[in-house]
Design a protein around this nucleic acid. Structure first.
Lengths: 252, 252
DNA sequence: GGCGGGCTTTGACTTCGATCAACAGGCACT
DNA sequence: AGTGCCTGTTGATCGAAGTCAAAGCCCGCC
């Protein structure tokens, strides 16, 4: 079994013979709508798809190791990837969550400065670092998409800094639930007042994302449930009957 | 007095007549070494400099307001700019510090999502949003520089998330002093073990950057001084006799 | 069905940083 | 010199979140 877990397959095997058309594997791909591949024309898509491949990564498996040489990038197609940093004494902090169709990787650096790990079972489309960097040089649109994605991540990181630095434990937990509710199902009606989803994170993950302990996270979730803001089944399945009530709990 | 404070002057007034040469105002500019203007050739530099102008912004003045329409971008030439976010009830968090020759502004968005304010007296080179965005379309190199700068800021934001989420108050204060020591004087020998600088932030700013109160910041600084890790004169001038000893205090 | 291990919850107690309050130093202005 | 303001320091007390400990729940496995 390779580092991606099981069930890998090379995308190039099933390419359409008409190379002016969108490659079959890319045709219904998340990453072409909102993801970086949306910047590519059919010919470029074909070129990239020749060296790309889809993988399933099982929960807990590592996509990119901290301080490890990076030789490939990925697009998340489904599932959630957590980006973590660890201090020398073992304290850990999740610094970002990547949902479909986000890009995973740090362009223009040979070594990763963080750890990317599957929080749930994940499927990704991976391609060699060199192939993408070559394509960046040829396609201004691709670099533009990368810039847009990076700016989006920077905005999100800065929003989260406010959560980490200035919110109470109760507000932090509410903020996380809201973040997940808004990202986990990209096709949900954003106007709908009731939302339902499976938590992609364990209590330990939540604690690491919020800068809390698992006990504190558990207590705050219990309180939200006791107050009727959320409903929980099997510790993971969450129902938010009224998103606006959850928003109030985030502290703005 | 305009919103930049005093002493503004239009750069185009003193342009060299040989337009294949680097414009005089840009010749010795910080932003051409490491800043985004380094990506421009002399002709492009001339074009941009025609609509750009240098300003002095006095400490405390606002460069960009939150939720305000953005019509210009800037490069920091000297001094320190703080980027802040504020919750509806007034709690504040500094989400980034910009030193020379950093770029200030959020490309491709009409409204700012944060507040940029001069932490010290600052000098900047500003240019219209439209001029830069036009130039981005023409020069792939410029967009590449912007991407590099954005990736750098994202790395910094994520490092800081670890500080906010997982470090003790003592480690936070040490981390901040180290950050400033490393950024305030770009020409200092990075190998030198003793460093000296003026704090560009008030205790309140430090508290807002670290997610603490001013009292806690003050106590931790007092402790570092008592332990001989730093020396302070006039509340602002800091001497670090041995950078390695400060690093140990950051919790790594 | 019963066993075992991982995840989660709950409770008792401790601690770090926040809050409240008083005061000290520096500086501008009268 | 004297006053007032702003920034920073120090002390006393409080409370939110951490730590330590025990028990419950869920699920796979024998």
């Amino acid at each position: 079994m390779n580092k991606y877990g099981n069930n890998s397959g090379n995308a190039a095997e099933r390419l359409d013979i008409h190379n002016s058309e969108v490659p079959e594997v890319c045709a219904a791909c998340e990453a072409r709508h909102g993801g970086i591949c949306g910047a590519l024309d059919p010919q470029q898509l074909l070129a990239l798809s020749k060296s790309s491949s889809r993988h399933r990564v099982s929960s807990g498996a590592e996509l990119v190791g901290d301080a490890e040489a990076v030789d490939h990038y990925s697009n998340v197609l489904s599932g959630v990837v957590k980006l973590t940093k660890t201090l020398s004494d073992g304290r850990q902090q999740i610094v970002g969550l990547q949902f479909a169709p986000d890009f995973v990787g740090r362009p223009f650096k040979d070594e990763s400065t963080l750890n990317a790990e599957a929080a749930t079972d994940v499927s990704v489309c991976s391609f060699p670092k060199a192939a993408l960097e070559r394509m960046i040089k040829e396609s201004a649109g691709l670099e533009h998409r990368l810039l847009q994605q990076t700016l989006k991540e920077l905005d999100e990181a800065r929003d989260w800094m406010v959560t980490l630095g200035r919110k109470s434990a109760a507000e932090k937990v509410a903020s996380l639930l809201l973040l997940i509710a808004r990202n986990i199902n990209p096709y949900a009606d954003p106007e709908s007042e009731t939302v339902e989803f499976d938590l992609p994170l364990t209590r330990a993950d939540i604690a690491d994302y919020l800068g809390l302990t698992i006990e504190t996270v558990s207590r705050q979730i219990t309180k939200l449930r006791a107050d009727g803001v959320i409903d929980i089944r099997n510790n993971r399945h969450i129902t938010v009957p009224d998103i606006a009530r959850l928003e109030v709990r985030t502290g703005a």
